[in-house]
Structure formats: structure tokens, C-alpha cells
């Protein structure tokens, strides 16, 4: 996710919003290749009040706009209309417009969301819609933030360790063994969870010590992976989750789960199980004793 549309780039007006299918009559109301302009007396079109944050690292503020909204549109459509008609230098990052690339993360009325997956129909017509960039990351310009924190954190997680005895094409895994990991693989790396997590959002100084929900989930995924050979390679994913990636900072308040557009149960299925695995390794004398005895018996 790196495309940055700075400048008056126009919505291509194809079937971008079709996937969010809300209005039955939208199909014929808007030509497939048209610029998405108002259709005469089309019912459902109205003027909305938008407030969009404009600025950069040196400062900025919320700017007011009156902008046309059509039935079936999403917030990203409106931002594109602003680019096309009123603020040609409005910076916004987007790619797929289908909730799959994870580029268009922002905060809408204070709630972290994907702009392309937030329908205008959820707002009252008289309501002011406030759009700001994500507030946990350094701002680049307008709605675009610098998310490199997340890439640095991604690199800190040791990758899958291939089992020594298996070659290419020889990996066999049972479905029930990979179900858990597959839920986590739905992640589109929108970083909304990283943005919302109060550990770093409200405490810049914790960024060095805390990997964030997305990457703690990655550790959980690998620790649950049926073929990961990390233990054989002397890598303790459980211990390091706590000691190096800051799992202890998470107080399981579930905001990551609340904002995840892929509806991954990050806290219930990744973070809490990982906390339990850490407890096995570090805080449970019985498990520790059991492992000792079993190893001696072998």
C-alpha cells in the first residue's frame, strides 16, 4: 500500500461501489464509465456537510466542505469528489476501493475505519461527517500518514522457520491444524488496529517496546503453525512475545477487534491465547514442572 494520490485525480466511476451494493436502482442511475456526477433529479442525491483535516507535519486543521452525495456511495467516493471539484490537492491514499488493499484507513467521526467500506447511508443527512488521518502515526499530508512503524515492527518478528526434513511440495497440513492461522491470514494490513490500540496511540514512548495487535497476532499465527520449526531452531516465540514484542502491554480491552474491517477476533483468538501460552512458558510452575518431567522421561 503505497500509492498516494496527490492532486486532482478523479474517481474512475466504474463499479467501485457496486460491491457494497445498497441501492437497487443505482446500476442504471449511473453510467458505468461516467464521472459519477449528479443525475438531474435523481432521488437520493443531497448536499452533505464534510469536515476534512488538511495539513502536514507542521500543522493543519479541519476544513469545511459542502459536497454532493449520491445514493450508494461510500466516504471514499465523497473524498474523491472533493478532489475532483473543490480541493484538487487533497492527499488521500487508496487502491482497491473494495476493502481489500488496506490503503484507505482513516478516522471518520472519530472512529477508525476504511473510507471505502463506510457507506454514506449510515450517516444522517444533516450530520457533519468529519474525516481525519489516523491519529497514531506521523502525518505526511492531509489524510495520508506515515505507517512505517508497522513495517519496522513486521521486520522484528522472526519469520516462519521451515522444518529441516521437508522439501518443497512435501508440506502436508490438516485443515483443523491451520484453521486458526487462516483466520489471521485474512488480515489486509490496514493497520487500523495498530492505530487504535491505546498502548501506542496514547503513549508514543511505547512504540519502541510494543509490536501492536497486528504483529502479536502474527506471532500467535506462527506459534500455532503446525510446521513452524522455531522451537527446534532454538527460537522461543512465546517467551519473546512477552520479552521482546511487548505482549504484556496489551490489557485486552479489545479495541483492535472492534475496528478490524476483516472482523478478525484479534483479542479472543490471537492475543488471549498467546497470553495463555506465555503464562505456560513463564508464569505457570505446574506446566514448567510437567515439561521438565516429561522431557526427562523421554
Amino acid at each position: 500500500m503505497s500509492v498516494q494520490n496527490v492532486g486532482g485525480r478523479e474517481t474512475d466511476g466504474t463499479d467501485g461501489t457496486g460491491g457494497h451494493g445498497v441501492a437497487g436502482q443505482r446500476g442504471e442511475a449511473r453510467p458505468a464509465n461516467g464521472p459519477g456526477q449528479a443525475q438531474g433529479g435523481q432521488s437520493g442525491a443531497y448536499l452533505a456537510h464534510f469536515r476534512v483535516w488538511r495539513g502536514d507535519a507542521d500543522g493543519g486543521g479541519l476544513e469545511d466542505f459542502r459536497v454532493e452525495v449520491h445514493e450508494g456511495e461510500v466516504v471514499l467516493d465523497i473524498i474523491h469528489r472533493l478532489q475532483a471539484t473543490q480541493a484538487s490537492d487533497l492527499a488521500v491514499r487508496w487502491n482497491c476501493k473494495a476493502g481489500k488493499c488496506g490503503s484507505c484507513s482513516a478516522e471518520i467521526n472519530g472512529r477508525p475505519r476504511l473510507m471505502c467500506m463506510t457507506r454514506m447511508s449510515v450517516f444522517d443527512r444533516t450530520e457533519t461527517v468529519t474525516v481525519t488521518p489516523m491519529r497514531a502515526f506521523p502525518v505526511v499530508r492531509d489524510l495520508v500518514t506515515d505507517v512505517s512503524f508497522n513495517y519496522a515492527k513486521a521486520r522484528e518478528v522472526p519469520a516462519f522457520v521451515p522444518p529441516a526434513e521437508l522439501g518443497p511440495g512435501e508440506y502436508r497440513m490438516q485443515q483443523e491444524d491451520v484453521n486458526r492461522s487462516q483466520e489471521f491470514r485474512k488480515c489486509i494490513e490496514c493497520f487500523l488496529c495498530q492505530n487504535t490500540c491505546h498502548v501506542v496511540r496514547d503513549h508514543e514512548e511505547n512504540k519502541a517496546a510494543f509490536a501492536g495487535p497486528r504483529f502479536l497476532m502474527r506471532i500467535a499465527e506462527l506459534d500455532m503453525h503446525p510446521l513452524d520449526a522455531a522451537p527446534e531452531a532454538g527460537l522461543d516465540r512465546k517467551g519473546t512475545a512477552q520479552d521482546e514484542h511487548g505482549l504484556g502491554y496489551c490489557n485486552i480491552t479489545k479495541c483492535c477487534t472492534e475496528v478490524c474491517p476483516e472482523n478478525i477476533k484479534i483479542t479472543d483468538n490471537a492475543l488471549i491465547p498467546l497470553k495463555e501460552r506465555v503464562a505456560d512458558r513463564k508464569y505457570d510452575p505446574l506446566v514448567w514442572l510437567g515439561n521438565k518431567i516429561r522431557r526427562r522421561g523421554q
Binding site: 507535519a57 481525519t132 488521518p133 497514531a136 502525518v139 496514547d202 503513549h203
Partner: peptide, 11 residues
């Protein structure tokens, strides 16, 4: 610090 840190969007 937090959402008012200097690097973040000034809100």
C-alpha cells in the same frame, strides 16, 4: 504525547 504528539495530525 499520544494523539497530541508533535508528529501527528494537529487536532
Amino acid at each position: 504525547s499520544g494523539v497530541h504528539a508533535a508528529s501527528r495530525a494537529a487536532i
